[in-house]
């Protein structure tokens, strides 16, 4: 059979259809790999890197992102090798500096250090789930990224917000909030959804709203 491949995950032999991701294959075995930016119904994004695993391809070892890496014959996958744990801990440590309310179980499981890094809690981890949901699934294009590098932000644009957000909220409750993994933004955003953006503001930050943040966004988009 040419369209299935056989390989091992954490020592267990698995068969999976070609094109399946390592993450899906692992989950079908009940192996838990943490993710933030992955969503079964949205296009691949590969941004949070939490789902890294270590593969061994005939003696050649490499860290890969399991949500993107397709299954291959003869691969040996370790989901919690020493290196995976170590790097995942550092990634979580970086995220924790932005997300003060990271779930305890993640912190405890990976023993994420608390005070080594400079914290600036924005609660947005830039997983892009809300942006992708809004564009890919709703076709509303209210949410989008602006800026690049360490200045990158997620913003809600006023014009499409006035057009789409009220209906979207009325139908199913704010769907973008439902996909957000960090929670705190949810409450903040729900109190004042994008279509209730203050007058004169053409786009506003999704993350914790204070004046300083709004100013940063205004500066980025030139308003």
């Amino acid at each position: 059979m040419s369209d299935t491949v056989t390989f091992t995950i954490d020592g267990k032999e698995v068969s999976a259809d070609k094109g399946t991701s390592l993450l899906m294959a692992a989950r079908s075995l009940g192996i838990d790999i943490p993710t933030l930016c992955h969503h079964d119904e949205l296009a691949d994004f590969g941004a949070c890197r939490l789902c890294i695993v270590e593969i061994d391809k005939g003696g050649w070892k490499k860290i890969v992102t399991s949500c993107l890496y397709p299954v291959e014959d003869g691969l040996s996958v370790e989901t919690e090798s020493e290196k995976v744990i170590r790097h995942r801990r550092t990634i979580l440590e970086l995220l924790r500096a932005r997300w003060s309310e990271m779930p305890r179980e993640l912190i405890e499981k990976y023993q994420v250090p608390e005070d080594r890094m400079e914290t600036e809690s924005t609660f947005c981890v830039m997983c892009g789930l809300c942006v992708r949901h809004c564009s890919e699934r709703k076709g509303a294009n209210v949410l989008g990224f602006v800026g690049r590098g360490t200045e990158r932000q997620v913003v809600a644009h006023e014009e499409p917000a006035l057009k789409y957000c009220r209906d979207c909220a009325a139908e199913n409750g704010m769907e973008c909030l439902a996909v957000c993994p960090t929670g705190v933004v949810v409450n903040d955003f729900a109190l004042s959804p994008p279509h209730m953006t203050p007058k004169g503001t053409k786009a506003r930050p999704v993350r914790a709203r204070d004046n300083e943040n709004q100013e940063e966004v205004n500066k980025l988009i030139g308003d």
Binding site: G46, A47, C48, R49, L50, I91, L94, L95, A97, R98, M117, E118, V125, M126, G128, F145, G147, R148, G149, T150, E151, R152
Partner: peptide, 19 residues
Amino acid sequence: FLADESCGKCVPCREGIRQ
């Protein structure tokens, strides 16, 4: 240089460079 030039998409690069 890279803090500005990174695309800012993935956590290791964006947050790693920041720290």
